[in-house]
Design a protein around this nucleic acid. Structure first.
Length: 565
RNA sequence: GCUCCCAUAGUUUAAUGGAUAGAACAAGAGAUUCCUAAUCUCUAGAUCCAAGUUCGAUUCUUGGUGGGGGCACCA
């Protein structure tokens, strides 16, 4: 409905402009409508008078008035005003809002779904872990954006296959294995000890030549799957790490259709690189490299002099596997910005191997996460782990509930904790670095996940009080009703979903939900909903629709909504 | 050194080239005999600097300053 009304207004504006701008060819002029930032400025606004006034030798307001005088009555539009330097503002009618509320109510869980990506098949890779390294706060960022994009694309009509690409072979892993053996726990160790061993290995590699040589040997044996004590340790650690990864991923609400491992991609990548020497790659100092410098990038090693594929070869192999095993229109890879140039290189070399690989691949990056206490790195100790953060936020949520004297289930506290963490991440535009003060960022107040959940629970509480005594909700605007910001925002939800999906920017959803919740809470505080009058029905409809929109929107962000809190 | 990205209240941030730059946290003042105060209302507070393009610039261009990423055998 909202799409049609925009088109109707645009068409009529065009006609009006043609008769107002006599003698001038305006057929090529594109009419754009936007939502004014300020809700009091109307629902749609057009700037065409300002853009064209100069060429017509008129003042913008003069032209705007001429255009408006040529406009007929428009269905769903209550009034048209000229404002500011020459904006033409359209105020939608009560009937329009009534219809949009009814539509949202009727669509329920489908409300907001868009056909922006209708039928598109997308392969989306995210949350790729480094096995043997702990899942820390930085991985939360990747998972949060990745999962939000998966759900956003689905909500926009795409068919999405989610995959992850665990690193199960690397010199870093050899360091952890070395550490495990060194700690004398090779027979039996925990995932926490793997983390410790990794840190130990990294230090030893830097400081001791002996350890370095041994680690390199371990690395070779792992790459070659050589039957050895270290390979046994590696297998155990790999299983343990995977189990750990699966647990945290499940807790965060992600699901992967498949895991493609680096060991597999390394072999494939090496084969492809060697097949493309010398057409794409060349030998240099015993290694196989790609001369990215000839394409405005930089030279780098794909197969090192020891004969192992580096991560460039691995990602090249991964592309090959994706294109061979899946049928899709677009492959999206979500990583940290520090890999930006890496993927530019991968994409460039891929383009020279198989044009389609580059054309159908999109590499998206989110910003880096910095703690106010300093940069985080999995290479140093004392990194906040994802589970530790979630657990600590969860106990704060329980404490908070206890203080206010309300009961909170374990399950709800978990939802609140995940909401606080995910929302703090996803409310920032993807690509921007995120500065995280654990105390302040994971707030339960204001522009936060729990605020939205609270608003939802509040709506649900009102509904529970009203029903089943009230029967079905009737959407009918009461007499003398002054429409609220809730209605002015509500009908925009599908547009917001569409925009977020097309721009790969889930934060638009977060910002929108916050505006909506804020509008609802503000209205809520102004008067009673269950006041016994006929207006009750419509107020309940607004309440229900607000709840549904928040629920659907948070669902996209990977956040669940407790019924009570 | 080369190259890419970023810069908005004290802090974290929003703004498809538009109107009085929008929020939240922190600060100050208030609101609960009433459906959930994890709420609401009010006050104060910001576009790094300098040019340019434009009817109009936080947004685009150039230069500067500051911060971060990447730049050969780590991922």
């Amino acid at each position: 409905m909202t799409v049609e009304i925009q088109d109707v207004i645009k068409g009529l504006l065009k006609q009006a402009l043609e008769s107002a701008g006599v003698g001038i060819d305006v057929s090529g002029t594109e009419i754009t409508l936007e939502h004014p930032a300020d809700l009091t400025h109307g629902d749609y606004s057009c700037n065409v008078a300002m853009r064209l006034s100069k060429g017509l030798g008129k003042s913008p307001r003069e032209l705007a008035e001429e255009i408006v005088s040529k406009l007929p009555e428009i269905e769903w539009v209550d009034r048209v005003e000229i404002a500011g330097p020459g904006f033409i503002n359209f105020h939608l009618s009560e009937e329009f809002f009534e219809h949009s509320v009814a539509e949202a109510l009727e669509r329920g869980g489908e409300w907001g779904k868009s056909d922006a990506l209708s039928g598109e098949k997308i392969l989306l890779e995210h949350s790729s872990p480094n096995l043997f390294k702990p899942f820390h706060i930085g991985h939360l960022v990747n998972n949060t954006y990745g999962e939000a994009l998966v759900r956003l694309m689905q909500f926009a009509g795409a068919y999405v296959t989610a995959i992850s690409f665990p690193s199960d072979v690397s010199p870093g892993i050899a360091k952890a294995v070395w550490g495990i053996i060194e700690m004398g726990i090779a027979e039996n160790f925990t995932i926490e000890q793997v983390g410790e061993a990794y840190v130990k290995g990294v230090e030893a590699y830097k400081e001791s030549e002996g350890a370095k040589a041994r680690i390199n040997e371990i690395n070779t044996n792992i790459y070659n799957k050589e039957d050895s004590p270290e390979y046994e340790v590696y297998k155990r650690g790999r299983e343990l790490s995977l189990e750990y990864f699966n647990n945290i991923i499940a807790r965060l609400g992600s699901h992967f259709d498949k895991l493609i491992f680096e060991t597999q991609a390394e072999q494939e990548g090496k084969r492809i690189v060697l097949e493309n020497v010398p057409s794409v790659f060349e030998e240099s100092d015993g290694a196989v490299i790609f001369r990215g410098s000839e394409h405005g990038l930089f030279d780098n090693v794909y197969i090192n002099s020891a004969g192992f594929g580096t991560y460039l070869a691995k990602d090249t192999g991964l592309l090959s596997i994706k294109f061979r095993e899946y049928d899709f229109d677009k492959s999206i890879t979500v990583t940290d910005v520090e890999q930006k140039q890496h993927f530019e290189l991968v994409k460039k070399s891929a383009e020279l191997i198989n044009r389609e690989w580059a054309e159908k691949s999109l590499f998206l990056q989110h910003g880096r996460l910095a703690l106010t206490t300093g940069k985080i790195s999995s290479r140093s100790g004392g990194v906040p782990l994802a589970v530790d953060i979630l657990d600590s936020v969860k106990s704060s949520a329980l404490e908070r509930a206890q203080e206010s004297g309300s009961e909170m289930t374990e399950e709800s506290a978990e939802m609140v904790a995940i909401a606080a963490v995910k929302y703090a991440i996803v409310k920032v535009g993807m690509g921007k670095n995120i500065t995280f003060d654990i105390e302040q960022s994971l707030s339960f107040e204001g522009d936060s996940g729990p605020y939205l959940q609270y608003t939802y629970a509040r709506c649900k509480s009102v509904m529970a009080k009203a029903y089943p005594h009230r029967g079905d909700i009737k959407v009918q605007v009461p007499r003398d009703w002054v429409h609220t910001n809730i209605e002015k925002l509500l009908y925009r939800f599908p547009e917001v979903v569409k925009r977020a999906a097309l721009e790969y920017q889930p934060h638009h959803i977060a910002n929108y939900l916050n505006d909506l919740a804020s509008a609802y809470n503000s209205w809520y505080a102004q008067g009673k909903i269950l006041d016994g009058t006929d207006a009750e029905h419509y107020k309940l409809a607004l309440t229900e629709v607000t709840a549904q929109t928040i629920k659907n929107g948070l669902q996209i962000l990977g956040i669940n909504t407790p019924e009570r809190m």
